[in-house]
Computed example of a mutant assay.
Amino acid sequence: MIIKKKLNNNAIITKNNQNQEIIVVGKGIGYGKDTNNLIDENKIYKTFVPENKGEKKRILDMISQIPVQYIEISEKIISYARRKYELILNESVYIALTDHISSSLDRYHEGIFLRNKFQWEIKHFYPNEFDIGLKGLEIIKEECGIELKEDEAGFIGMHIVSSEVGQSMDDFYVMTRFIQQMTNIVKYHFSIEFDEESLDYYRFITHLKFFWHRISRNRENTMGSLENEILEVIKNKRVNAYLCALKIKQFIEEKYKYELGNEEILYLTIHISRITKNIPEEE
């Protein structure tokens, strides 16, 4: 690769094999180099391919304002997320996460500590993403010698969740609130506390995440005759779970103006039945 523009000692603008303008980052990649010089591609640890001028500006601002070490930390966190959990993340997570890490470390040096009001929800609704956040704290400690509080693991997890769904942090808050509402309906209907370590609970929360995506995009589901037959069987076998699913249906239609079809009621009933399977049906 040939340098088209040197941004600083750790970042340059060049072109890839498809003749696209790209921004590459690596420690010392531009040191002692000038325009039209070859770069050592072994030093590259992150490549940005801006999709538009706005994204390019955000990347350039990040590179000019934030220590390259923080970009490398973000890369390690995101690589861990992709490697361990096979997550598909929006590339914009690099900017958001790097900016957050920079702000967190700035606050640390100023003695400012922010509590994460969604810490409990992150731990219980997004355990994989919270684990990524904890790994992020380990990486920050290794790279910077700074031990941040666990609330920051929650913040990192929030950025990962936001990147997974391809939406903003505001959308994350709304989705988390939706999950709270759904789980509360089930809790109060059955007067139970969930086994939050169980696979059934994890599957239910995952279902609710995708359920919210459909509601937020107003996407309807179609249902075949086989699924209708299954619903008839399920609702007669697990009456209480079905009645709880109907409560959720009524709530969503009133609150979100989204009409649930039989397919969604079927899957809600199945998941509710699983997480309440130890409760006798007659109760």
Rank of each mutant, 00 (worst) to 15 (best):
F210I: 11
G28I: 05
Y108D: 04
M223H: 03
M175Q: 04
I272C: 04
T222P: 02
V68L: 09
I44P: 01
Y173E: 06
I44H: 00
M158T: 14
N90L: 12
G28W: 00
D34G: 10
L243P: 00
H271S: 05
K277D: 13
S198N: 10
H213V: 14
V239P: 02
I22K: 00
N218R: 10
E129M: 02
I101V: 12
E196N: 06
E72V: 02
Y94A: 03
N16I: 14
F48G: 11
I230Y: 13
R107W: 13
D106S: 15
G32N: 12
N218S: 10
I205K: 00
Y258F: 12
M158Y: 05
Y31A: 15
K76A: 10
E21G: 12
I71M: 05
Y80V: 03
L7K: 03
E147H: 11
L148Y: 04
K84T: 10
Y256M: 09
D40V: 12
N116E: 09
I73S: 06
K255I: 11
I2G: 10
V161W: 00
N19M: 06
L7C: 03
I13M: 07
C244P: 01
Y80R: 04
M182Q: 10
V93C: 01
N90A: 14
L266F: 07
P50F: 04
F190W: 08
Y188L: 09
F125E: 08
V174R: 04
K123G: 08
I22D: 04
G28Q: 05
E143A: 13
R203W: 01
Q250G: 11
I179W: 03
K27H: 10
L199R: 14
G26M: 07
I248T: 03
I275H: 04
T35Y: 12
Y31W: 06
F155K: 05
E227I: 06
R238C: 11
I192L: 14
G28H: 07
Q167G: 15
I205H: 00
I71P: 01
E75S: 09
N218W: 03
I44F: 02
M223D: 02
E86V: 13
V186T: 07
K257H: 14
